[in-house]
Simulated assay, not measured.
Amino acid sequence: MLNKFLAHIQSEIAQLSYGEKPKELYEPISYLMKLGGKRLRPALTLMAYNLFKEDWETATKPALAIEVFHNFTLMHDDIMDEAPLRRGKATVHEKWNRDVAILSGDVMLVAAYELLSEVPDARFKQVLKRFNRTAAEVCEGQQYDMNFATRNNVTEAEYIEMIRLKTSVLLGFALELGGMAANQDVVVTNQLFEIGENLGIGFQLKDDMLDVYGDPEKFGKQVGGDIIENKKTWLMLKAIEKSKGKPEEKELKEWIDKKVFNSEKKVAAVTDIYNRLGIHELAEAEMNIYFKKGFDGIDGFPVAEERKTMLREFGKYLLKRDR
């Protein structure tokens, strides 16, 4: 069934029309949307709707709104990060230019609202309010992430809150939206949001681990990128904490402070420090806390067990994924 959802989403994305002229405004949107991606968020919306009703296709356009919004954030994030590549292809600001990427991203946000308006009229005000709050939180998370780059005293709790805002609230809203589209009450939709929020934090912690320990052939991007950039991931913050008063403290600081270095050597050296400090095991334990909360939420969710099977399997996929 999940593959059916994903195939349906992919087909519908291919048929989306954002506008025609001027082509410099609309072509970048189609270009970015055709680059692919996991399509996890719209799948969650359809999955949540299908917990209650069989006609899940009716939730397609609201589900696509989540995907268009997500890609809008990626387009603007790439500008801020000055990233040359997105999914192995030139980013929009590289292929066109920065101004085009900003403006095309703005149109994507408008398109997301248009798709979102396809929810039942009786729930539109509630959906709009929740989407606006979620969109603002994603921006808050991005700002915290940028703030962390110039701070040396970031705590683990701050990092978890940052990824909750930047990544997991949108996964939570994707599930919540499916419940709202299926006309469920606020108690139920809140439960769906919490499930997605916890799975989302676990998902990002898994991503952080894959960045260090993933197979580059499967992961799809450079392994060790976070180490090269001195990104304050949970693993880095825990390594700084656990190395206090140990030989690894000086080693780690030297690699963080180096301005000129061989990337491969830095990744190998910092990964070795992580291994000596047991960081991988600690990160896995932290990740499992949030996945367990998500699975507990699924277990206690008030629908028949057989209707929850796909959501539970989806959570297991996020936990076990290697890319």
Rank of each mutant, 00 (worst) to 15 (best):
L109F: 14
T91D: 11
R123C: 07
M108V: 00
A101F: 07
V127T: 05
F124T: 01
K129F: 14
A111R: 13
G105F: 03
K125E: 12
N97C: 05
Q126V: 11
D99R: 10
T91Y: 07
V107D: 02
I102V: 15
Y113S: 07
K125Y: 06
A111F: 04
V110A: 14
S117G: 09
A90T: 10
F124Q: 10
W96C: 00
D99C: 01
A111P: 06
D106Y: 11
K125C: 00
V92G: 04
N97G: 02
G105W: 01
K129G: 15
L109N: 13
Y113H: 14
S117H: 12
Y113G: 01
L115R: 08
Y113P: 06
L116T: 06
R98E: 14
K125L: 09
V110Q: 09
K125P: 00
V100P: 07
L128G: 01
E94Q: 14
R123L: 11
S104H: 02
E114I: 02
E118R: 12
P120Y: 03
L103W: 09
A90Y: 15
K95D: 06
V92E: 05
L116Q: 06
N97Y: 09
V92Q: 05
K129W: 14
D121K: 13
V127D: 05
A111H: 13
A112W: 14
D106P: 13
L103D: 03
F124D: 01
L116E: 03
V100W: 12
V127S: 01
D121W: 02
V92R: 06
A90V: 07
S104K: 03
T91W: 06
T91A: 15
Y113C: 05
